[in-house]
Simulated scan of single mutants.
Amino acid sequence: MLQQGHMFLEEDMERCEIPTVALASGQHIPILGLGMSHIGGYSHNALLHALRNCGINHIDTAKRYGNEAQVGKAIAESGVKREELWITTKLWPGDYGYQNAMQACLDSSKRLGLEYLDLYLMHWPDAHTPGKSAREVRAETWQALVDLYRRGVCRSIGVSNFLVHHLEQLKEDCSVVPHLNQVEFHPFQRPQELMDYCRRNNIVFGGYCPLAKGQALTHPVIQQLAKSYGRTPAQICIRWSIQNGAITIPKSTKEERIEENCKVFDFHLEEEDMERISSLQCNTKLIHLSYPLWRGRGHS
């Protein structure tokens, strides 16, 4: 359940209080954040603007993105108190294994200039170590995250891109269930079975690519709803994700886009419109796609 903060007001255009979601760790993660990426995914000025002016204190990065040190520099320059920040980063599969994971976490923390991480995620379920099965490597790596969590180095721990069978294996092999699972989630990719599994097992569901890398913004249904609500297509997509209970982390390097993406807490999508957007599901992930997901599907 969301912990509702103050609603966005027109006269307070730059900053808004963002609702949070309780994790099994006892921590509360902001439901809206700013995502980084390894391809054009970092702008120092945009990140500072998000932290100082927009009320975005939830930043999602990863070792793979190569910008942890830059994010740490922006955090230090922002003047935002550490206890008001939520910083997520991720462990790359090349660092899987117990000792490697322990060291990689400490290295990420150092690059970010932080004494602890709010959330640390295993980035992918893929795991390749000679002489061990992928399941064994995932369990060994997850145990390292559990120990980091118990030591307070990571206040919450989770996984990214894990499917139901991966989560089931971790539950069988380890004593702590992930606090969050972050996967691709947008109008064209809504993994209902995975969402239901996470909710049954007290795993918070996180979604990345809420705009489908921009593809959702040109869909006729999204554009129609944007016009109806007096919003932008991006705001419709982000609001849909949030109303589905997903921790939502749109990416942007543009200050004006970050502001736009924040203005989603002063309106509510009607249930029939939520269903219209959900009906766009075509169960196709964005990786390696170079054509619009929705072309030829007959939506209007």
Score class of each variant (00 low, 15 high):
G97I: 12
R151Y: 08
L117A: 04
A144Q: 02
A139D: 01
I87W: 04
R111K: 15
A127W: 11
L112V: 05
D147L: 00
Q103E: 13
L148F: 14
D95W: 12
G152R: 08
E84W: 14
K132N: 02
V137F: 05
S133C: 07
L85P: 05
V159G: 00
I87F: 07
T129S: 13
S109H: 10
H128T: 15
L121C: 00
W86D: 10
W124N: 12
S156T: 12
E115Y: 09
Y149C: 01
G113Y: 13
L119Q: 13
H123S: 02
T89P: 03
L145V: 12
R150S: 04
K132C: 06
G113S: 10
Y120M: 02
Q103G: 06
K132T: 03
Q143M: 03
V137Q: 07
L91R: 09
I87Q: 04
R155K: 15
L145F: 08
T88W: 07
G131F: 04
Q99C: 08
Y149E: 06
S108I: 08
Q143N: 05
T141C: 05
L117H: 12
R138L: 04
T129Q: 13
K90E: 04
Y116M: 11
L112S: 06
Y120Q: 01
C154W: 08
L85V: 06
Y149R: 05
F162D: 07
T88A: 03
G158M: 02
Y149T: 04
E84V: 09
A101S: 03
V153D: 14
S109Q: 14
H128W: 13
W124R: 14
Y149K: 09
T141A: 03
P130V: 15
N161A: 04
A134D: 09
Y98I: 01
G97V: 11
Y98W: 11
V146Y: 03
G152D: 00
K132W: 03
W86R: 07
R151A: 15
M102E: 08
M102T: 15
Y149V: 00
A134C: 09
Y116H: 12
G131I: 07
Y96F: 13
R150Y: 08
E136W: 13
S160I: 02
G152I: 02
L85W: 10
S109R: 14
A101Q: 00
W92G: 01
S156L: 08
